[in-house]
């Protein structure tokens, strides 16, 4: 019988960089990111899919990194909050807007929310409030009451709108 602890070595892309990791089958993507790749921007809250803190993009789609086994992600592309940083360590427009609109307080939920909104803004550069709220409904924030982070996303949505609303 195969012993349960047999490790697997797999290739995947993390933030555009090809990476090879050796993991136990039960290793969750969140743990690979945080402990093996030292990408601690991805946070773990509930570890059962409900809080959204651990959200990353997998092949461009937002997903819970606490519900994915790393071993299953052969050849897939993962993006974390660290990928949002602009040259010179500057915040990207969405992150800057979060700062400007007080879209975060403690910041625990923020990396996940930023990644969900990043996916939305790529698909739909000018989402309305309904679409923004729909996208962040899967995230729990204990600090902001959500209004400011919705405002932050809407400001980015309006920013380069070609047609005035």
């Amino acid at each position: 019988m195969t012993t349960s602890t047999t490790t697997h070595t797999i290739d995947l892309t993390v933030n555009g960089i090809p990476r090879q990791v050796t993991v136990e089958p039960r290793t969750l993507l969140a743990d690979t990111l945080r402990t093996q790749l030292r990408l601690t921007g991805t946070h773990l809250g509930c570890e059962h899919g409900v809080c959204g803190a651990c959200t990353v993009l997998v092949d461009g789609e937002p997903a819970r990194s606490c519900l994915l086994f790393t071993v299953s992600l052969v050849g897939r592309s993962v993006e974390t909050v660290e990928s949002l940083e602009e040259p010179g360590g500057r915040l990207n427009p969405l992150q800057q807007s979060f700062q400007d609109h007080h879209g975060l307080q403690c910041g625990f939920c923020t990396p996940g929310i930023l990644m969900s909104l990043t996916a939305l803004l790529r698909d739909e550069p000018h989402p309305d409030e309904g679409r923004v709220r729909d996208q962040v409904q899967g995230h729990i924030c204990r600090c902001t009451g959500y209004q400011q982070l919705v405002d932050a996303a809407l400001a980015v949505s309006d920013e380069d709108a070609e047609v005035a609303p």
Binding site: T3, T6, H8, R26, T27, E47
Partner: peptide
């Protein structure tokens, strides 16, 4: 890391 150990198969 919370899940129990298991053997992984990827057909």
């Amino acid at each position: 890391m919370k899940p129990p150990a298991f053997a992984y198969h990827r057909p």
